[in-house]
Amino acid sequence: MKKQALILFAHGARAASWAEPFERLQQLTQEQLPDVRVVLAFLELMTPQLPELLAEFSAKGITEVSIVPVFLGQGAHVKSDLPLLVEQARGQYPEMGIKTVEAVGEQPEVLGAIARYCVASL
């Protein structure tokens, strides 16, 4: 049986309160995927960071990991930093299938929801 995990990958910040909406997103996502481990990982300034989380997953026998960048756009962190981290992890954990998808802000459904929120603010 495949052991799956979903990582919501965010930037991180010095202020702990910055992570609150991401923690709510993690909880909402976990509720929809009760058989999948859904966790947050951060690029910097907060923990867990992606390399340590993937090491933990490997130790626990997780074989499939999907990474969703919770960024509005495909900037340098998503285009450069994340692929480098994933490439290194694939070398360290060849038994683990690791895939990434586009940043959430690139998705029409997400942009539509943000636009509806902006329109409703009038």
Rank of each mutant, 00 (worst) to 15 (best):
H11A: 06
A16G: 06
S17M: 10
W18R: 01
P21Y: 08
F22D: 03
Q27H: 08
L28W: 11
Q32D: 14
Q32L: 15
L33N: 10
P34R: 13
L40K: 05
F42V: 06
F42Y: 13
L43T: 03
L43D: 02
L43S: 12
L43A: 06
E44F: 14
E56A: 09
F57I: 03
G61V: 04
G61E: 14
I62H: 00
E64V: 07
E64G: 04
V65Y: 07
V65S: 02
S66G: 14
P69A: 01
V70Q: 00
V70M: 03
V70Y: 00
F71H: 09
F71I: 01
Q74C: 03
G75D: 06
A76R: 10
K79H: 15
S80N: 15
P83W: 10
L84H: 12
V86L: 03
Q88T: 09
Q88N: 09
G91R: 00
Q92R: 10
Q92S: 13
Q92P: 10
Y93W: 14
Y93Q: 07
P94G: 01
E95N: 07
I98T: 03
I98L: 11
K99P: 05
A103W: 00
E106A: 05
Q107K: 15
P108K: 06
E109Q: 07
G112W: 15
A113Y: 14
I114M: 05
I114S: 00
I114F: 09
I114H: 08
A115I: 12
A115V: 13
R116C: 13
Y117G: 03
